[in-house]
Structure formats: structure tokens, C-alpha cells
Amino acid sequence: MRIHILDDWFETLPDLPGFSLLDGHGVTVWTDHISDEATLAERLKDAEALVLFRERTHVTRSLLERLPALRLIAQRGAFPHVDVAACSDHNVLLCSGKGGDEPNVAAAELTFTLMLAALRDLPGQMASAKAGLWQNGVGRTAKGLTIGLYGYGRIARLVAHYARAFGMSVVWWASPEGCEKARGDGEVVADSREAFFAESDVVSLHLRLTPETKGAITADDLGLMKPDSVLINTARAGLIAPGALKAALDAGRPGRAAVDVFDQEPLTDPNDPLLSHPRLIATPHIGFVTEQEFESQFGEIYEQIIAYVAGAPINMVNPQVWSRRLYGL
């Protein structure tokens, strides 16, 4: 198959062992991000299969109309960036695996790393040392603090494990179903949403971005946080209401934020008001960017392509496309 891999910004995948699963296919790896749909369509005009790098490129109906050779889109995880109905209308099969039962360890590790960096102001201390000024302020110890985890998923539960190893208390907030499950597991759930934000020293977001959760974290929520508290977001920027995080940092509640995700990605403007905010620690959406995680995620994606070529597709989101093809409809 003629396979195009999109948005591998650092051309990481060809150097990993799992890439050999695509031997025998014509593979093109694109290392930049194209927002202009006409330009993107011209690049992909001969593509029979697309491999999507998370949610970096949106697959719209108008894009699909420009790709007559396309037969398969392979990815992993949620797919709010893909117009599934349009895929079905254009006989493009979407395959998306959910991974195994293991949590995304890389994302959990980065969450905890950002928390420690914020509590100790590591970026500020490093800049001070490199400037010959030596120490710059006093940090906080994690032990004895309360971390509030919003969302009762696998990554959040792994972060809770790390937090307890550091001597932190853990409190939860989630959907009604998530809160009920947490209580059933013997976890501490906040008395109310307001108490969750007001009493946590660290709040870390671990929700999927869906129409229901978009903008779920409001300016009022952030305004309840302590002046010396920290907000961590390694999930999705869209969970926070537009403009609310910058306004909250301007107001000093929370005192600091550490984020791995932004509304616009890649964000390359160093003067962006949020990115350049003095109370913000930022990483460029690297929560899943480790060799081990790439091998796991993309190995599963490559297996979807192999299964499709073998005539036995797996992880089909719109199986009616395959049924039509199978029966010549």
C-alpha cells in the first residue's frame, strides 16, 4: 500500500524497531504540519492509507473528497479529529485501537514531573543558576500536600500511586459515575466540586476531551484555588474554558500552572500571552513522546494496516465500509 504518515515532526518513527512492520509498503513520512487543506490534499493525492499522529491533523469531509485513492485511516485512541460519517460516505475504513489495559506511563510520569518542577520552580532556578545568580526563591515539598485528581481514569490512578509514594494525600473529582467508582474503590472523593478546587494544593486534569467536557474547567473553578496552588494539565487544553487559564494566572489563583497542551498546536509564537506567562511552565505536548510509548502505540497502528492488507481488519470504527467492500456493494 501507499502509506503516508502525518506530523512526525522529528522523524522519530523510522528509527524505531516497529517501523519494520511496514516493510514492503511504500511509506512516506511527513515531518511538518500542514494546515492548508488544499496543500495537504495535493501531498496525499496518491495515498491509500493514512497513519495519524494523535490529533495533529483534522480529517474533514472536504479533505476526503480530495483523496479518491484513500481506503484506510489507521490511528490509536479517540478520534474527535476525524469525520467518521464522511469516512463512511467515501468508503474509507477508520481503524483505531484503544491499547491494552496498561495506562500511558509516559503521560503519568510527565504529569508528576511537571508538578515537581512547578513546586520547586525548576525552570526559574535553572535560569538563575545559568545566569550566575545562584538560587532564586524557595520551593515547596510535595510531602504533606494534597493533590486533587480530576477524572478517575488509568493515568490519574497511576499519578495517585506516585503521589502516595511521595507522601501526598489524594482526593478525587470526576463525573458522577467516576466519583461512584472511586468511592467503591475506597478512595477519598471531595465533598463538593468547590471543595475540590479550594482545598487541593495541586489540581491535575485527567479527562478525555468530548463535547461534554469541553470547557468543563471554568474561571470560577480556577478562582477557588489557593494562591500558592498549582494546576497541571497534560490532558487537553480544551478542557479549560477559553481564556480562563491566563486570566486565572493573572489574578494569582492558582499561583502557577504547568501544562503540556495548548489550544493551538504546534504553538511556535514565543510571545503568545499564555506560553510566555511568567507563572506558566510549559512543555510542547510531549506527554506520550517516549520511545517505549511510540513503539507501543504505533506498533498497534501498523498491525491494523497489516490486518487490513490480509483481509481481516481489526479495530474497525465504521465496519459497514468493510462490509460494502467485501460484498461489492
Rank of each mutant, 00 (worst) to 15 (best):
S175I: 11
I73D: 00
L224W: 02
L44K: 02
L231A: 07
N315E: 13
S35L: 03
L64G: 04
D185T: 07
L205P: 01
L207M: 05
W322S: 13
Q264I: 03
I147N: 09
P80F: 01
L145Q: 15
K226S: 08
A41Y: 00
R324N: 15
L158S: 06
G18E: 15
R154M: 00
E37R: 03
A129S: 08
S296G: 05
R164Q: 12
S35N: 13
T39H: 07
A118L: 10
P266I: 01
L209Q: 02
V171H: 02
I281R: 03
I286N: 06
L231T: 10
A107W: 00
V321W: 01
E11D: 09
G287D: 09
K130I: 15
L63S: 01
D221R: 11
V188G: 05
V59T: 09
P14S: 04
T60E: 00
A38W: 08
A142V: 09
D36P: 03
T283N: 11
H25A: 06
L72W: 06
K181L: 14
H206G: 00
G99N: 03
H277A: 06
I286T: 08
V230A: 10
S200Y: 01
T210N: 09
L231M: 09
P68N: 04
W172L: 12
V188Q: 12
L93K: 04
Q297T: 14
K214N: 13
W134L: 09
P103M: 00
R54F: 04
I5Q: 06
A74G: 12
A106L: 07
P278Y: 02
D32R: 08
A85P: 00
D272M: 07
L245T: 08
R2V: 12
